[in-house]
Simulated scan of single mutants.
Amino acid sequence: MRRILLFLLLIPLLTQATDDVAVTLALIQATRPNVEVIEDHFSSAMLLTAPGDKVSEGNTETSKTSSIRYPHFLSPLNIPLRITSPFSLRWHPLMQRFSPHEGTDFAAPRLTPVLATEKGIVEEAISHPTAGNYVVIRHPLGWRSRYLHLDRITVATGQEIERGKVIGYSGNTGRSTGPHLHFELMYHGQTMDSAKLLSASETDTVLPAAAVSPPKPAVPKIILVTEIGGQEKVMVKYKGKTIYAGANQTVFGHYKVLLQNGRYRLYKLS
């Protein structure tokens, strides 16, 4: 009965603030008793206060909490957000079955800077067969954020992170069909719809992508020295092809095998 009355009291608020995460948290508390909402972290005044409204000065704990700007997190990307797969039950393109998608996929070209959505401490910064290179950050008040499929990671476990710091660069590692950022937000272990909790980036500065060295041109390489039919040969590999050659023999049209001081090397013909 208490849960039903609390839900009825919240109905008028829904007509004005359907996307307000404070109301969302209150609904969770009203309709899902198994999810714990700690009053020290989110008082009743804060739960029902819209962003920007002031809280009475008598509640110093609430004033201190609201000054951290929870739960309106910074965008994890410094480019306009475009959702390619929302927080939902979806048909998995690789597993070929329906499965929960507990994060939000944002389009992000490879090596787009990925930003810490709020200050915190890095709990994990590792590689996983499914999640790829990923980072987990523990934030104050029971929140955590996860960043999956990164091309590279620039932070380490245990490191303190400031809001907006580059923690890595987007990529296509792990079980992924293309470069993007899979982003998750959790409150006391409960995964939330992160797209509804993000605020716009507070900076107009576009960070540069990670420096990438241009690919080196493919050249033949001597893999090993062996003996074939009583004669010493070298195995040379080039663009997926492998041949065996002796000293002074021309390979792949433009390279010659030389034997100098007991060591084989390839010499490019002009």
Rank of each mutant, 00 (worst) to 15 (best):
E160R: 12
Q159A: 07
G189Y: 02
G240P: 05
M186W: 14
L8T: 10
G240N: 08
G230Q: 09
S67N: 11
A125M: 00
L74Y: 11
V166G: 05
K119T: 09
A210S: 08
I126F: 10
P217H: 01
E102M: 15
F252Q: 00
I137D: 05
H188D: 10
G262Y: 00
P33V: 01
D20S: 12
R263A: 14
V55N: 08
T242N: 10
R152W: 08
S63V: 12
G132W: 04
Y70P: 09
V136T: 14
H180W: 03
T242P: 06
H101S: 07
I222C: 09
L74S: 11
P208D: 02
E39I: 06
I126Q: 13
T205G: 04
E123T: 11
Q190G: 03
N261D: 14
R3N: 15
H180C: 00
V136E: 04
Y267C: 09
A116D: 01
D204G: 12
L10C: 08
T130W: 15
R3C: 08
V136S: 07
R265I: 01
T112M: 08
L89K: 11
E61F: 12
P12H: 06
S56M: 08
Y187S: 02
E160H: 14
G171Y: 06
L77F: 00
M186K: 12
N78D: 15
Y255S: 02
Q159V: 05
L48P: 03
G230K: 09
R152Q: 13
S88M: 15
F106W: 02
S99R: 13
T130L: 15
E124C: 13
Q29M: 12
P208L: 04
L27A: 07
L5A: 13
D53W: 14
S99F: 13
L258T: 09
E124T: 11
L25I: 10
T242W: 05
L14H: 10
N34Y: 08
A245P: 04
S201P: 09
E39V: 09
A26K: 03
L9F: 07
L259S: 07
P179D: 03
I121W: 03
A125H: 03
V166A: 03
G132E: 02
R138G: 07
H188K: 12
Q29W: 14
A195Y: 02
V234M: 05
T203G: 02
D193V: 00
K221D: 04
T49A: 13
A200V: 11
T49H: 06
K239V: 10
V155M: 06
L150E: 09
E61R: 12
G240S: 04
L10V: 08
K256L: 12
S145P: 04
L224E: 15
K268W: 01
K237A: 14
A245I: 03
R265L: 10
T62L: 06
N248R: 11
I228D: 06
W91P: 06
T173N: 04
L224A: 15
E61N: 13
L77Q: 00
F183I: 01
S88C: 08
I161H: 02
L197C: 10
P215G: 05
E160C: 11
L48C: 02
